[in-house]
């Protein structure tokens, strides 16, 4: 994967899955384009309008602990982030259910301890997937990250779990 560059949004603590996709959209279809229209609507008022988050054009999200927590398993959350142009999320830790969904969708949820303390919304970051190095180009700081497990990298390279499994089924290969 090649280097990604763009601006970041620094999330507050307690950004829960049900704030990323609010209740009225839980029963809607899972579709990156549609889900991105109202993504983050529950996080703050500025995002609570059509394309309120998406129009900022962020490439990355930086967070502290338990990003996308609160125990919702809906995939609208990760789909909405992808639809809004997010290419990676860096955090101290992620909620289990959305971490799993992110892996399945091939959206890098990257663990990087303490990163939120050194980034401000609007900073330009770059991420080098092969080395795991994240650079804050605005203030010149650099962070390492935990590399994804080989399986996760394989799923990501295939473009998500659906493609990964579809290819295996087509080729008649066993899974696991």
């Amino acid at each position: 994967m090649s280097k990604i560059e763009g601006t970041c949004w620094v999330a507050d603590d307690y950004v829960m899955a049900y704030d990323i996709i609010i209740q009225e959209y839980w029963t809607s279809a899972i579709d990156p384009e549609d889900n991105s229209l109202w993504v983050m609507a529950g996080v703050k008022d500025a995002f609570n309008k059509e394309n309120g988050f998406k129009d900022n054009g962020y490439t990355f999200i930086v967070a502290a602990h338990n990003f996308a927590g609160g125990g919702k398993s809906i995939e609208h959350v990760v789909a909405g982030l992808i639809g809004a142009g997010i290419q990676a999320v860096f955090a101290d830790s992620f909620a289990r259910l959305q971490f799993r969904n992110a892996i399945n969708y091939g959206l890098p949820f990257i663990t990087s301890k303490g990163i939120a303390e050194h980034c401000k919304t609007g900073d330009t970051l770059s991420y080098e997937p092969d080395s795991g190095i994240i650079t804050n180009m605005t203030n010149g700081t650099e962070f390492s990250s935990v590399p994804p497990a080989p399986f996760v990298a394989e799923v990501s390279a295939a473009g998500g779990l659906m493609n990964y499994v579809r290819e295996k089924i087509n080729k008649g290969e066993a899974i696991g």
Partner: peptide, 20 residues
């Protein structure tokens, strides 16, 4: 274990799911 629809779809097809 709680999963998203992708994992459930994969399990419906294969009878399998991945876990850490």
């Amino acid at each position: 274990n709680a999963v998203g629809v992708t994992d459930a779809a994969v399990a419906m097809a294969t009878g399998k799911a991945w876990f850490r």
